[in-house]
Amino acid sequence: MQWITLFQKEMLENWRNKKWIWFPLVIILMAIMDPISNYYLPQIIEATGGLPEGTNIELPDYTPSEVIMMSLGQISSLGVLVIVLISMGTIAGERKSGVSELILVKPVAYRNYITAKWAALIVLVWGALFIGLLASWYYVTILYGSLAFGSLLLVVLFYGLWLTLVVTVSIFYNTLFKSVGVVGFLSVLTIMLMSLVTKIFGRFLNWSPIHLSDHIFDMLMMEQISTELIATAIITLAITIILLTGSIFIFKSKEMAN
């Protein structure tokens, strides 16, 4: 199977350039940073000179679900940025250096070339997300209180859809532009615009992928999966599929033109 070969080549490459080592570690660091620092906040304030006499600030007691959401918050900002940075060169970089010509001169289907790259990134991102949230869950359990493991798996499942969309946006721009910098810039810009539009028209865009983490938080609080969450997940999945199909068509027409 051609697809399997291409996929294995991508996985091997991600292993050789050590993405499989450093990317999960970075996600783990992001996920456990907030649970640890919030737990030690009183000591940190004390160590840095303490509060002035007489001030009385009640530090909030966080619930386990709130702390898991803090980890997601870190992954949503810094994590998404790192994902864009590692994916912006996957196709654009190969086209610039001529590697893609070496591959595509053989009878390789464009569909396979793109989806294999996409799938290798998705496996990496989902693996890292799972490991990172597992580490966060471990800290939440020992420092804040119990959270069902099933809930954690649901968080990974739904939040993974958002990261999948981020990867797909980056792949989409990869097929449009040859410059790695332009791909990265436009991917970040698109994600920022999506969140801006959702914030402005939030009431009408309840199913926007940006709302996924809000709905995940509701799920943790209510302990049930709302129809909004499912609808948002389906919308996210649909946009992903449309973008991926679009990238294959764009890549096909661009390469044919060359």
Partner: peptide, 16 residues
């Protein structure tokens, strides 16, 4: 509690 955080940073540094 803190050790894993420091160890992960150490691994990143060494691999790099």
């Amino acid at each position: 509690v803190i050790a894993p955080f420091i160890i992960i940073q150490g691994i990143l540094l060494i691999v790099a």
